[in-house]
Design a protein around this nucleic acid. Structure first.
Lengths: 241, 241
DNA sequence: ATCGATTTGTTCGTATGTATA
DNA sequence: GTATACATACGAACAAATCGA
């Protein structure tokens, strides 16, 4: 029995992807076909494919096949003024987003602390999924004080960007306060939403937006596809671009 | 036969960890034992264990066993003044680091551009592995202009922190310029260095340090364990703490 | 220092369920 | 409905790493 045959196969397939023998979007031969081609068992093939899928090179779809996946990386600047549309638009990326639910819930723990509200005060949690050039890149929840922004969920549906919603409340400018970033494996439901393989990690970004005088505006948690996004922190730049 | 039994088993083990039935550091029963206990095949058990290991709850060691892993999260602030020791020391974390190699190589591509050197100019690449409270948390490479800092590798061995090395060159202060963050699955060698499971992701941080007048000092790429670190970006704070 | 027992890692074979076209 | 292709599952054997006698 050979030693770590799945690694050899993994490397062979990866080489074919890198060399362009397997073009982005192309379908791999079926697992039994690969098994005979590489003179290995189907388990071994699956292990190699799983590894490549985890790294974002392949996307495995039950009942359809296994496909070579292109991996565009977008660069998302984080700074004093962090604006999704303006920042990505400058890179020639078309950003769209769709709401998928909003709730009026009592603020608890971190949300209450960050928004400077007492535990249990009502907040509006509005959820959105964002696409860049048609591919899902992130989804997340934004929490607002329900007393100050009672109808924010409705306004977010009508108006495109967060900035536009704030302008409708008379807030012309706001700044990004604290931002926290960490990474972890994706839950299966998150992977499904982002249309990425379950083994690909996600980046979790928690952030607080403030008015110019320091008043907390919104606290949010956004899950980003680690395969599709990279963050840039430009501390000096006024516009974070 | 096929009702995703491995997910059930995964959930059962995870519950035992969360409830404290399995304490941090405890060894799980062997795979064959778990197989009989849960009335499943060994493959199914392994699938459940692999998932939990990927999420950082378990650490699997060939020839020894499978252990419940505690997951301390350290908070690493990124700001104008980003200093490993001072920032983590303030959290009561003991930071140590050891060099593991240095080379004099020609600058290429990104390194040359960031350091404002012409392609092929000699740079010193010095590599270090850092521990927080004895656990490896990151390793990476720092690139310096070889003309300006010819013996930086030697000085980094003698002196503890990066700041101390710069002071020995007469540089009293420096600022963090651009920082880029992204996440990806760990290569097996990286996982070994960080003593984390191969399926746990890593965070990749690329950063440029500048002198107060803007002159590039060093460009670095550091791989952080996603299981053990979280980044905080405090844009307003002068000391990023 | 060596051997053997223990435990996880890899591989094969085979069968059956589930999703897609 | 049928065929195709991936997902899950069981069993068995051997390899590799670890540890203690």
């Amino acid at each position: 029995m050979t030693r770590e045959r799945w690694r050899e196969i993994r490397a062979l397939i990866e080489r074919d992807i890198m060399d362009g023998v397997l073009e982005p979007g192309a379908r791999l031969p079926t697992e039994p076909e690969l098994a005979t081609q590489y003179e290995a068992g189907r388990h071994t093939i699956r292990r190699a494919i799983a590894e490549l899928a985890k790294e974002g090179h392949l996307s495995v779809e039950q009942g359809r096949g296994t496909f070579v996946q292109p991996r565009p990386m977008i660069d998302y600047p984080i700074g004093r003024r962090t604006r999704l549309r303006r920042n990505l638009g400058a890179q020639g990326i078309d950003v769209t987003s769709e709401p998928f639910g909003a709730d009026r819930i009592p603020a608890e723990g971190r949300v209450a602390r960050m928004l400077n509200l007492s535990e249990g005060s009502p907040v509006i949690a509005s959820r959105r999924l964002s696409h860049a050039d048609g591919v899902p890149v992130s989804f997340g929840t934004l929490y607002h004080d329900a007393e100050r922004f009672p109808d924010i969920a409705e306004r977010r549906i009508g108006l495109g960007s967060v900035s536009a919603v704030y302008r409708s409340y008379g807030i012309e400018d706001y700044l990004r306060g604290q931002t926290q970033i960490h990474a972890r494996p994706a839950r299966s439901e998150e992977a499904r939403r982002l249309r990425q393989h379950p083994d690909m990690p996600v980046l979790v970004v928690r952030a607080l937006d403030r008015e110019l005088d320091g008043t907390p505006l919104a606290y949010g948690q956004v899950i980003w596809s680690a395969a599709r996004v990279r963050f840039s922190i430009n501390i000096d730049d006024e516009d974070a671009g």
